[in-house]
Design a protein around this nucleic acid. Structure first.
Lengths: 252, 252
DNA sequence: TCAATAGTGTCTCTCAGACAGTATGGT
DNA sequence: ACCATACTGTCTGAGAGACACTATTGA
């Protein structure tokens, strides 16, 4: 088959975002309420069209900034940053009933934001616990329209992929620090791991592990007592991106 | 921004394939020679347009079958199978000088084929060692056209991503068996790891490790002497997909 | 004083790497 | 005989899990 650029089928290309954060000991994702059909009134992942002159990463970063006010790391600005990476691409015919849409899903990891959803447009937006969105152990959420999902389109599948990526990636990389503010304690970092994995970790072994892994954490000098109890040392993320040896997720 | 399906910019969507195999102790990728501009005469990854009624995985499986005669696992047929998974999506404006093309790259892992490139169309196709294509340690491959790559478009970047995915994935999954024929020996599996990672492994520790990992290998009963020396037991791939504990890549 | 969290030390078991030694085929 | 490869066993050191113990704050 010759490569004939004039005879291609028409596609729309969008980016969808799985934006994760840790709020009140739970892993949460950003969802927006749809204001028009199809799936009007349902919750969906934020996203939008890729513009004609824009690469995929830029489109995802732009959508992230529009929805949350966060800027992707690498985007130079004094604003709060988030980790952003490409996740996977979804392009089944019929995933959007209106036309053929190929969506390049991205994963963003953000620290807990002071205000729930600053910026963003007028649509309703909220942080929802992923366990709720993915219906963990919930068999009574079958809607009337036959869509068993609590999210529009194939967004539940995309969210599940993003959550699984985050869960596995904090094992062998220092990405868990992307959920933390610039300065954080070992205990706060442990609570991130516990929320993302849904487990409880031994504080003493965890402390030995993360402080002993070279390049993971660097002490910033200060201490804090915001958790109560003995004041804890404050750390920043170190330069290491890949952890060796990795953090081990229990009960595998 | 309202979601207006009638106002989308025009995109073409293609699939590109990183097809890897192990031949004569080297990790090799399938490349085809371009018969038309741009990059006429250069080597490129196989690929093609996604059809209007076809999902992305089907398009990749179709291209794989057209180019190699291999069928993706899951595609029911008596034909030789290969592992196929989505890799990443490349959509920079200008990556194709003719128009805006978004390419969903896929990774395929195949056993060494008896005939170099059965099936496929009339264009030249070959298995090339990835070290050669990626120009490891080669600074003299700067072409006249300013493209420092030995491959067309951004295919060197895509190939590098595919190779890195394969290298890391055989650590924690049983995917290395996708490079082997249905029955294989521990020594043949070890040579796969050595070729993909570019290292030498201790045969005794490797044997202990793979035979001790539950679900990785199941003995098929037979033995073979095709490598010379004492006859070796033949194995098939076991049911396990995730290896626990993982194989460890030396010199990390 | 007690409760809560931070941080250190110690023991044990698993497992990876190094490598000796035995088994069994081909030439 | 000799070589090549397959396979088994043993030692050692690194590190994870379990958990006792001490340190330092606020209520």
């Amino acid at each position: 088959m010759p490569y004939d650029p004039s005879a291609f089928p028409p596609f729309a290309v969008t980016v969808d975002l799985v934006v994760l954060t840790v709020r009140r000991h739970a892993l949460c994702a950003l969802v927006v309420r749809r204001g028009e059909p199809p799936y009007e009134g349902k919750w969906a992942l934020p996203g939008g069209f890729v513009r004609a002159d824009e690469d995929l990463t830029s489109a995802a970063a732009r959508e992230l900034a529009e929805e949350t006010g966060l800027h992707a790391h690498g985007t130079d600005s004094g604003l709060p940053g988030a980790h952003l990476e490409q996740l996977a691409t979804y392009g089944d015919p019929g995933r959007d009933p209106r036309m053929r849409v190929v969506s390049v899903a991205h994963l963003a990891l953000a620290p807990d934001l002071p205000s729930p959803t600053p910026g963003g447009d007028a649509r309703g937006a909220r942080w929802a616990p992923v366990d709720e969105l993915l219906g963990v152990g919930d068999l009574s959420r079958y809607a009337d329209d036959g869509n068993k999902s609590s999210l529009a389109f194939d967004h539940e599948q995309i969210l599940a992929a993003g959550v699984e990526r985050a869960r596995s990636k904090i094992e062998y990389s220092s990405l868990a620090t992307a959920f933390c503010p610039p300065e954080f304690t070992v205990g706060e970092l442990r609570r991130v791991y516990e929320a993302v994995w849904g487990v409880v970790l031994d504080p003493r072994n965890f402390h030995r592990k993360v402080t002993g892994t070279p390049g993971f954490l660097v002490p910033s000098g200060g201490t804090t007592t915001r958790q109560g109890g003995r004041p804890a040392q404050l750390f920043r993320a170190g330069g290491a991106t890949l952890l060796n040896p990795p953090m081990l997720r229990p009960e595998v």
